[in-house]
Design a protein around this nucleic acid. Structure first.
Lengths: 132, 132
DNA sequence: ATTGTTGCAAAAATTTTGCATTATC
DNA sequence: GATAATGCAAAATTTTTGCAACAAT
């Protein structure tokens, strides 16, 4: 594991990810922090997301319109992607196998992560006849 | 649904997707067909993938290194992504809930698709000490 | 001092699009 | 003939990288 120095930018970026339920992409984080951190660069956001992935501090939950969306909650839990607004949500289901830890896969495959993703229309878009 | 004309390019692209187990991306399809179809354009591959998505002939299974990977088998089934070689595989598991059709989600969420994705190391990369 | 982090601009890489041409109906 | 499909090049995105300046150890 690479050596890391303290970095206030890194801390702020990680905190922004932890403090939102939006499962943000790099752009969202950058736009969120830029006002209070005028010298922040988008490259720094990307570089730190790469660090978070490396250190297993975040998972990439899905890609929406070509943009990776991350989650600081790295425990296995299902997500819902709205095909209308692109929102990514944590969701509850009646399928209790979602969080199953030790599944038996085909011989030779060693899985360390499992992702369950639903695609559909979220409540907000259902009620507003969203036409994205 | 948009009106469609016959197109030999479209047919060839769809056949290429159906005939492989690689869960290909646009580039793979293009490289596969280019030799036998020298006037094929990458833009045509992308445009036709867009058509296939629209008509639900394929699903986007995941993104690997920023590239969308598609599957002509649109029945729900789990996939495995190798974090080493980037290969995408159909996989069997002992979790029989994977193919559950009608799950109860949080109120207001209407899902029409479900994707189950495992991340890990595939048999080939396990045996060759892949260091990608 | 050494090495990690950052901003900036440039570069990669994937995907989309405008437009003239060709194919299908 | 009308309209859909395509090639090509250019554009739009997202993400990565080279490099000089700066910060942390």
């Amino acid at each position: 594991m690479a050596k890391r120095n303290f970095s206030s930018k890194r801390n702020a970026i990680y905190k922004a990810v932890c403090d939102t339920k939006t499962h943000p992409g790099a752009r969202w984080i950058y736009d969120k922090l830029k006002p209070e951190m005028p010298d922040l660069s988008l490259a720094t956001v990307y570089r730190n997301i790469a660090v978070f992935k490396e250190e297993n501090m975040v998972n990439v939950v899905c890609s929406v319109n070509g943009e990776e969306r991350i989650d600081s909650n790295t425990t296995a839990h299902p997500h819902f992607v709205c095909s209308c607004c692109g929102g990514v949500y944590d969701i509850n289901t009646n399928d209790n196998a979602h969080n199953c830890q030790t599944e038996i896969l085909d011989k030779g495959f060693r899985a360390d992560k499992k992702f369950v993703l639903y695609h559909g229309i979220c409540p907000k878009c259902s009620s507003t006849d969203c036409t994205n």
